[in-house]
Computed example of a mutant assay.
Amino acid sequence: MTITQDQPAEVLNLISPDVRALLIRDVRKDWPDLTDEMGERGVSQLVAFLATSTATNEPLTPSLRVDLFWHRFLRRSVPYLAFSRALGVDYIHHVPDDSEGGADPEGGRSAMAAATAAITALGFTVDAEFWPGMGAAECSQCHAGCTDSPVKK
């Protein structure tokens, strides 16, 4: 699938309601106060991020909240692989930054701005609660350096 600005709603539906419910349940293990409504929004931000990552060769970095959903989705490999393939790629790789030196907050802000700009450019809505610098998530976010793979094979 080639993603265009008129298809975000279609892409958001690539994760079934059953898998959405499982992901929300899984994320609650680390985020016990997560409501169903916030969980639905989190899955939507995950979808927007992953779909956008398939539309560029530049690595994109998720916020920590989006990354939490991504980690849980990766553990459900069958729907994750089906989702990746529905977007026209074999697999969207999660590439952690293993370099030493710890978090880079300034680099993180820059990476988040690039990711949210790319998400918006494809016509998805960016939810400020899930992206630092845009809303409530800012106070608890740092840049851990995870990205998607710039090579989508």
Score class of each variant (00 low, 15 high):
Met1Ser: 15
Thr4Val: 05
Ala9Phe: 02
Ala9Tyr: 09
Ala9Gly: 04
Glu10Thr: 15
Val11Tyr: 04
Val11Ala: 01
Leu14Pro: 00
Ile15Ser: 12
Val19Trp: 07
Arg28Val: 14
Arg28Glu: 09
Asp33Gln: 11
Glu37Lys: 10
Glu40Ser: 11
Arg41Lys: 12
Phe49Glu: 00
Thr54Pro: 03
Thr54Gln: 01
Ala55Glu: 07
Ala55Phe: 07
Ala55His: 06
Pro59Thr: 03
Pro59His: 00
Ser63Gln: 06
Leu68Arg: 15
Phe69Glu: 01
Trp70Met: 04
Arg72Ile: 14
Phe73Thr: 04
Leu74Asn: 06
Arg75Asp: 13
Arg76Ser: 13
Arg76Trp: 10
Val78Gly: 09
Ala82Glu: 12
Ala82Asp: 10
Phe83Pro: 00
Ser84Leu: 09
Ser84Arg: 11
Arg85Lys: 14
Leu87Asp: 06
Gly88Gln: 07
Val89Asp: 03
Asp90Gly: 14
Asp90Pro: 01
Tyr91Leu: 11
His93Ile: 11
His93Thr: 11
His93Gln: 10
Asp98Ile: 09
Ser99Phe: 02
Glu100Cys: 01
Asp104Gln: 12
Pro105Cys: 01
Gly108Tyr: 02
Gly108Thr: 04
Arg109Asp: 14
Met112Asn: 09
Met112Pro: 04
Ala113Met: 02
Ala114His: 02
Thr116Asp: 00
Thr116Ile: 05
Ile119Trp: 08
Ile119Gly: 08
Gly123Lys: 04
Phe124Glu: 01
Phe124Gly: 07
Thr125Asp: 08
Thr125Val: 12
Val126Cys: 02
Trp131Ser: 09
Gly133Thr: 04
Gly133Lys: 05
Met134Asp: 00
Met134Val: 04
Met134Pro: 00
Ala136Asp: 11
Ser140Asp: 03
His143Met: 08
Ala144Phe: 12
Gly145Glu: 02
Cys146Met: 13
Pro150Gln: 05
Lys153Met: 14
